[in-house]
């Protein structure tokens, strides 16, 4: 009987809510976020303006944490296990130009992945406000 109630309730909620895919799904889920992360790493590696910041970075770890974070903030099934944005970026004196450069790369990568403009903007809306925690520290 209890199972039946659960089943009915589940069906009702499933049908009454228009199934808007989460941002995580719109970004292509696990595979999509992996591709974005790899694309970003590639762009950073080839950008003389910002690559120097990563000279001493453990790239494997950075890759894993960035993917975790993108997954978490977009509503995916992950828990970010890295440091706070303020802590992780202190000592690097990341400038507005650095931030613009990285956001520019992110846009380029998302365009390459054919992510919808709306999903791109949803992600940018989540990342843009991190500026205050990341820059000039």
């Amino acid at each position: 009987m209890r199972w039946l109630t659960v089943l009915v309730l589940t069906l009702i909620t499933a049908c009454s809510q228009t199934p808007t895919p989460s941002l995580y799904q719109q970004l292509g889920g696990d595979a999509g976020i992996s591709a974005i992360t790899d694309g970003l790493l590639y762009e950073i590696e080839h950008d003389n303006r910002i690559v120097h910041h990563f000279a001493d970075t453990d790239i494997e770890r950075f890759r894993r944490l960035l993917a975790e974070q993108l997954c978490e903030i977009s509503g995916g099934p992950c828990t970010y296990t890295g440091g706070s944005m303020a802590e992780s970026h202190t000592g690097f004196n990341i400038t507005l130009a650095d931030y613009d450069a990285l956001v520019g790369h992110l846009i380029k990568v998302m365009q390459q992945q054919h992510i919808s403009i709306s999903a791109q903007n949803q992600l940018l809306a989540l990342l843009a406000p991190m500026y205050k925690d990341i820059s000039y520290r």
Binding site: I117, S118, A119, L124, A125
Partner: peptide, 9 residues
């Protein structure tokens, strides 16, 4: 303002 009108900025 991001994602305001039909997902546009």
């Amino acid at each position: 303002l991001f994602n305001q009108v039909a997902g546009r900025n």
